[in-house]
Design a protein around this nucleic acid. Structure first.
Length: 457
RNA sequence: GGCGACGUAGCCAAGUGGUUUAAGGCGGAGGUCUGCAAAACCUCUAUUCAGCGGUUCAAAUCCGCUCGUCGCCUCCA
């Protein structure tokens, strides 16, 4: 039984999909800049959820949107003096590059707000027809107070929220709490035609419309960062449930934590201390980044520190070493490492609200069993295969990290031959010199069973 | 002010009433192996879970208070 924590009910609940295919919507990024590690965290978490649900036999349809019409995009486009599409195209490419590099599988559909404009406008019209929204001065607003359930996700009360909020109300709004579904056109902004005049959609309505179009009016899981609970997800619920009458819009609401820096503060774009994914990937393997993230539970706020990613890189070496262990050709004992208890632990941990730290602990324990099995000469092939499978569920590729030695394989092997000659003649210091040279280039060597093996760090 | 999260070893981090006299990783110490190493294996590395008080046969886990940290309430994964 898979249990997932549901932000809506604030407890763990058994996960049972509505239909025979799990419908999952994950809030994507606004494409006005490169992705940072906070985006990586969210994408990795829901990628792992997707992979794990498939591992448990579910079919999954995952939708992750691009918000490609937004104030920040417009600001950036104006600043650089280029059309907004140039900005969005560039950063959509950058997003894919980052996520591919992190071994995050692409969603089933990656819709863009600008490509689903008819659905967005149609949904706004439905809300107006139902009396949930009203046009004014070319904009359309949602009547928050008409929705009795408003605030159920964030636990906020409308009046208490307003107390802490700025009260500079836009002209034409009936109530300061109302939010925009459609924004009347302003000069030099991207615009679309609508029954209410030229303009562009508000942020919240995009997600409802894209979820409806690509998944349907009721979905199984809606994911995103903790910071999206209010107002974004609260507003999505209000719009979606008002328009469709299907309650709940999403059975499960899942929220990943926010990356935290050494001072303990949340890392966000506005703080300007983001750590770019593409540059992180130049320094670390995707496996190290994923392991670092997944060694914390998804609902906590992982600490962002290069030292921790470097530690994860060392941890990955251990797993990689284990899957390279070969079983004896003739297994005289006939024994083999029993990996099933470890797979059971892995599954139980993952079933419990995606407890990846526990699941990873099970993998490491299995890694130890493989080394022990090797040392006692028993068959470890099944266990090695199991490590590969379980790692795969977490999206760990177990591939060697990118080469930084600057040496070709042939050059490395030539140096190793030199060292062999030196060793044969017992010129130990010469031999060590070669080893130091290789080590400096990030190549580690090992003399085992009369042979020298090497690997790039 | 409202809503919420958190404080576990040198560091990261699970565990949320007894099966854990607290997983796993990194780091550190000793041993085996090795020409020496590396890797691996073995052993050790929190009598204790921010502090204080309470409930209980039993608490890191529940309750209260105190101290400290952070998030949301405004664009944000």
């Amino acid at each position: 039984m898979i249990q997932l924590y549901n932000s809506l009910t604030r407890k763990k609940e058994e996960f049972v999909p509505i239909g025979d295919e799990v419908k999952m919507y994950v809030c994507g990024v606004t494409v006005y800049d490169d992705s940072h590690l906070g985006h990586a965290l969210s994408s990795i978490v829901f990628d792992v959820l997707h992979r794990y649900l498939e591992y448990r036999g579910f079919k999954v349809r995952r939708v992750q949107n691009f918000t490609d019409v937004d104030d920040k995009i417009i600001t950036r486009a104006n600043k650089e003096g280029v059309p907004a599409e140039e900005i969005t195209e560039k950063y959509i490419e950058s997003f894919y590059e980052s996520m591919d590099g992190l071994n995050v599988r692409r969603a089933t559909v990656h819709p863009r707000a600008t490509e689903d404009m008819p659905e967005i406008i149609g949904l706004i019209q439905r809300l107006i027809d139902g009396g949930w929204a009203y046009p004014t001065n070319g904009s359309v607003y949602f009547r928050v107070r008409r929705d009795d359930g408003y605030g159920k996700l964030s636990g906020q009360n409308i009046d208490e929220m307003l107390e802490a909020t700025r009260h500079d109300m836009e002209v034409g709004k009936e109530d300061p709490a109302d939010f925009a579904l459609w924004k009347a056109v302003k000069p030099d902004e991207p615009q679309w035609g609508s029954p209410w005049g030229q303009g562009r959609p508000g942020w919240h309505i995009e997600c409802s419309a894209m979820a409806f179009k690509h998944l349907g009016e009721q979905i199984d899981i809606h994911g995103g960062g903790l910071d999206l609970i209010f107002p974004h997800h609260e507003n999505e619920i209000a719009q979606s449930e008002s328009a469709s009458g299907s309650v709940p819009f999403s059975r499960f609401w899942m929220h990943n934590g926010m990356l935290r820096n050494a001072v303990g503060q949340e890392m966000s774009k506005s703080l300007g201390n983001a750590f770019n994914v593409n540059s992180a990937l130049e320094e670390f393997s995707s496996d190290a980044i994923r392991l670092w993230i997944l060694q914390s539970h998804y609902r906590t706020n992982p600490l962002l520190d290069k030292e921790l990613i470097a530690a994860a890189e060392r941890s990955m070496r251990r797993i990689r070493q284990a899957v390279e262990v070969e079983s004896p050709a003739f297994d005289e004992v006939g024994e083999s490492v029993d990996f099933r208890p470890f797979e059971k632990r892995f599954t139980e941990a993952m079933d419990d609200d995606l407890n990846t730290p526990q699941a990873i602990a099970a993998i490491f324990d299995l890694v130890r069993e493989v080394f022990r099995g090797r040392d006692s000469g028993i068959d470890v092939s099944g266990a090695v295969e199991s490590i590969r499978d379980l790692s795969g569920v977490l999206g760990l590729s177990l591939e060697a990290p990118p080469d930084k030695s600057g040496l070709s394989d042939a050059e490395i092997e030539a140096l190793i031959r030199q060292r062999h000659e030196a060793r044969d003649e017992k010129r130990w210091s010469d031999a060590d010199l070669v080893r130091d040279q290789l080590a400096a280039a990030g190549v580690s060597i090992a003399d085992t069973a009369g042979e020298t093996t090497w690997s790039r760090k």
